[in-house]
């Protein structure tokens, strides 16, 4: 056997096309915004629609991010994810209604405090519900996709009925806190304050999530677990515990998304989570199952597409996102930012 020569490895420069390919998904949102600017005749309408689309996209991202990680980590298809959105909305809005004296006061501080209390209550409740949901419903059906679909759908129906028992079958209409009502004007375009808050909050949450995933050991375990859970366990980590933690965090985020979505729509129903699941599935699939960044880009694309098309051609609004999904899957069948699975 010979001694190894000294290594002098050099990184070969990849072709420009190969280097640009991973960046293309990140360019899609700006491209869609520019396309909207060209297609929409009025700049003020375009600005209003863009902020609205971004706000919608951010809220969908908050609701969908937990689901994509749950799928990526343990191959669990949770059709019951929508219940966390509904429960979060009902808990949060109930708290806001109880704090009516704070939400209706003309004080930004009081309004935001009330919202914070509502959001914390919703996240705690949905986090706890997520823990119970994982223990009772998801755990017995690991590795069995068909059973997961059936049993999580069953769980969704049961919890929705419980909401109806507790809050009644009627829709609950609500008004936003005083400080978040109305609009601000930019270059002649009226932009709702609440939408700006939703954009800001979504962006902060995305950056926080990205920071945790990229710069903490827990984040490393999650990212590695999405790619090859078996190897993560062979390194000494209890992936099941990590998964339960991610499931709880994902449920809590869905609860937060539910509060935001309820305030965005100004009405909540027991079925609201189920209804928005269609958009969430589209986002998770086009983003690439298990990819948080893909989920973020997908959510923004869906939000913008829905708003632009609804303005330009209202009849096409319902199918615009299905068309978006078809186009992206024809281009990248594994989604925009596919996660390499080594299982």
């Amino acid at each position: 056997m010979t001694h190894a020569p000294e290594h002098a490895p050099r990184m070969a420069q990849a072709a420009l096309r190969d280097r640009l390919a991973p960046l293309i998904p990140f360019a899609l949102v700006p491209l869609l915004v520019v396309a909207g600017l060209i297609a929409i005749p009025s700049t003020s309408s375009w600005l209003t629609l863009t902020v609205s689309g971004l706000a919608m996209g951010m809220m969908i991202f908050i609701m969908a991010s937990g689901m994509t990680l749950v799928f990526g980590l343990m191959d669990v298809i949770n059709f019951g994810h929508g219940v966390f959105i509904s429960v979060g909305a009902f808990i949060g809005i109930t708290v806001l209604l109880m704090l009516g004296h704070m939400t209706q006061a003309p004080s930004l501080l009081l309004n935001l405090t009330a919202m914070l209390v509502a959001v914390i209550a919703a996240m705690l409740a949905t986090g706890a519900l997520g823990w119970a949901f994982e223990r009772v419903i998801v755990k017995p059906v690991y590795g069995a996709h068909l059973k997961q679909i059936l049993v999580t759908m069953g769980g969704l129906i049961v919890v929705e009925q419980l909401i109806i028992v507790l809050w009644g079958p009627e829709e609950i209409f609500l008004t936003r806190p005083e400080a978040l009502k109305g609009a601000v004007t930019f270059w002649g375009a009226a932009v709702e304050k609440y939408r700006l808050v939703a954009v800001g909050l979504g962006l902060v949450l995305f950056l926080a999530m990205r920071h945790v995933l990229r710069h903490t050991k827990v984040g490393l375990i999650v990212r590695a677990g999405v790619e090859n859970g078996e190897m993560v366990e062979a390194l000494g980590y209890r992936l099941r515990l990590v998964f339960v933690g991610v499931f709880i965090a994902g449920s809590a985020l869905a609860g937060l998304g539910g509060v935001l979505w309820g305030l965005y729509q100004e009405v909540i129903t027991a079925h609201m989570g189920q209804q928005i699941m269609v958009l969430i599935f589209i986002v998770v699939i086009i983003g690439g199952l298990g990819s948080v960044e893909g989920c973020f880009i997908g959510a923004l694309l869906v939000g913008l597409m829905q708003n632009y098309v609804a303005f330009l051609e209202p009849k096409l609004a319902l199918i615009s996102n299905i068309g978006l999904m078809v186009a992206i899957l024809m281009w990248r069948p594994q989604g925009m930012i596919p996660v390499v699975k080594a299982k």
Partner: peptide
């Protein structure tokens, strides 16, 4: 014992497919 417990007892494992985390 579960895999993680065996690993924590001081067993290092290198699988045939290397088990590298490509995205990391």
């Amino acid at each position: 014992l579960p895999t993680s417990a065996i690993a924590r007892m001081g067993v290092g494992y290198v699988p045939e497919n290397m088990g590298i985390f490509s995205d990391l």
